[in-house]
Amino acid sequence: MAVVFEKPKALSDVPFHYCPGCTHGIVHRLVAEVIDELGVEGQTVGVASVGCSVFAYNYFNCDMVQAAHGRAPAVATGLKRALPDNVIFTYQGDGDLAAIGMAETVHAATRGENITVIFINNAIYGMTGGQMAPTSLPGQVTQTSPYGRDVKYAGYPIRVCELLSTLSGTALAQRVTVDSVKNVNIAKKAIKKGFENQINKRGYSIIEVVSTCPTNWGLSPQEAIKWLRENMLEYYPLGVYKDVTAEGGDK
């Protein structure tokens, strides 16, 4: 019988622990498909961060290191400097990357650290139970912004791709989402480009995936996708913010 659908080889044969409607599973699969297509599983070392994706080390079949909260870019730097010909990626959430790990993120990018960063932005701290994230939207209700994020007190959400696109060391900064087949395909292409950039030694690539967190948003999976489209994408426009491989392709 012809195989029409199978699990990527780079993905372990264990069930994900993610909530229904969470987009981590889709993104994991896309990363694994790209690793398969590039044939680099044996050379790849992934760095899991702290957050819902902390168990990513169980899900990918390549070698994995589990980093402290926010330190994945530093751990990836150490790995990459020791293994310049291997493929090193981090998989980080918004609290990890844009709050506690912002210094590591900005400096890895500005050094042009030749790594690939998968950034899941779902505007909330998922694993600790739904606290305000650096990317939570103005007015967004969370456990620690129960009256809605008041920008007068809590400041404004950070647009990571825009910020990192100003740095010379960044090779690719692209924001995608996985709310539809079309967007999933765009996301996969972006992730693949991020890995190819590394193989071609172009520097730091970040693919920001605007994601859902139905559980902590208090919505059903369908409602969460709707909320993402209506609220997240307005504040976080999709697109390529920097791409050193595209002539005049910068947004």
Binding site: A68, A74, V75, T77, G78, L79, R81, A82
Partner: peptide, 10 residues
């Protein structure tokens, strides 16, 4: 943490 990464690499 860079030391952690490099040491992990062996």
């Amino acid at each position: 943490n860079m030391v952690l990464g490099a040491t992990s690499a062996g």
